[in-house]
Amino acid sequence: MDTLLHLLQQHGLLLVFLAVLAEQLGAPLPSLPLLMLVGGRAAHEPLFGLQALLLAGLAATLANSLWFWAGRRWGRQVLSTLCRISLSPDLCVRRNEASFARRGGLTLVLAKFLPGLSILAAPLAGAMGMPAATFMRLNGAGTLLWGATGLGLGALFHRQIEQLLAGLAQLGQQALLMLAGLVAAYLLWRLLRRLHEQFALRGTRSIGPSELAALQQQYQAAPVLLDVRAPLPGQTRIPGAQGLDLGALDPALLQRWPAEAEFVTYCACPHDVSAAKAARWLQQQGRRARVLRGGIEGWQRAGLALEESA
């Protein structure tokens, strides 16, 4: 434990920079606890606190800018890749889209306070075509607010933090084992959440793009096509699709369609998780429902037409 305290004392600023950079690049470990520890020292050394805030802002800006330009260059492929490699549930893309739809650019200011939004907000802003100057302004404001909050909480509770560090120092090696156990438990919890989400939605029936396109040509057999993505300006959709808000599911919504109607849901997320969630809800209401394999991206890859959203 003395080694950890020595690192915080001698290399606190470097640790802040590296921890924030790693988290914002996608590492599944929060850097806010470290900011709070550093904030405890900043209560006695205000200049140190200012340096820590500036370095945290620089690290976050570097990482966020990389993801922003990746989103601008490769679009939604970046979002799908991030969700596949992260430990967050696969609904993260839809939640980010929904946040942008409700709050617009304010999402970038709040993103670092919301698990699941932080890593995807920057590439989504790039994929949506947000001007770079607007992104830098809003993301910079959010970064400084987030960093100042972490350091400020540390400074506010510096006495408690100092008591905690003193207690950990007395525990010696046991404290390091305890911290390692907490980190491992946190990672395991996130992994189990992801696996539970995927397991709960397994077994949902699906349909391929070509098969769906053929059914759409048959008036009697044409299914009701439901787009469960969050509505965004300039968004395209599969012809004839209707929107379904996963955040406001209500059995009364189904009254607009005949009881014998079959539904096909689609999204633009890894493993079609949002679409599977919608299909599962429809099945629970006694309706027939399938998922479009590959979502709207699979539809596009099949060379099938899209239309502008209403």
Rank of each mutant, 00 (worst) to 15 (best):
L55Q: 12
Q255N: 14
Q173L: 15
G75V: 03
L304R: 09
G40M: 07
G172N: 08
L144T: 13
G40P: 11
L215V: 10
L226R: 01
R237F: 10
A200N: 13
S31E: 04
H11R: 15
G152P: 07
A63D: 02
L117C: 04
Q255C: 14
V109N: 00
R193C: 15
A185W: 10
Q218R: 13
L66Y: 09
Q10T: 08
H11Y: 15
H196F: 05
L120M: 13
S274F: 06
A221V: 14
Q300A: 13
L179A: 14
L62F: 07
T3S: 13
I207K: 06
L8K: 00
A175I: 05
G294L: 11
V38P: 01
P223G: 06
E197C: 05
L246I: 08
A122D: 00
G49D: 00
V224I: 15
A261T: 12
P233F: 03
Q198N: 08
L82R: 01
Q300D: 09
V20W: 01
C92Y: 03
W299R: 06
L32V: 10
A184C: 09
W257F: 13
A169I: 11
T149C: 09
R256K: 14
T3A: 13
A122L: 02
A27P: 04
G39D: 07
S99C: 08
L35Y: 12
L50I: 11
A252F: 12
E297H: 13
F113Q: 01
D227M: 04
D2L: 10
Q242P: 09
Q218P: 05
V183T: 15
T204W: 10
A214L: 13
P89N: 09
E262T: 15
G294H: 07
S210Q: 12
V16M: 09
L176Y: 12
L106I: 04
T107L: 02
C269R: 04
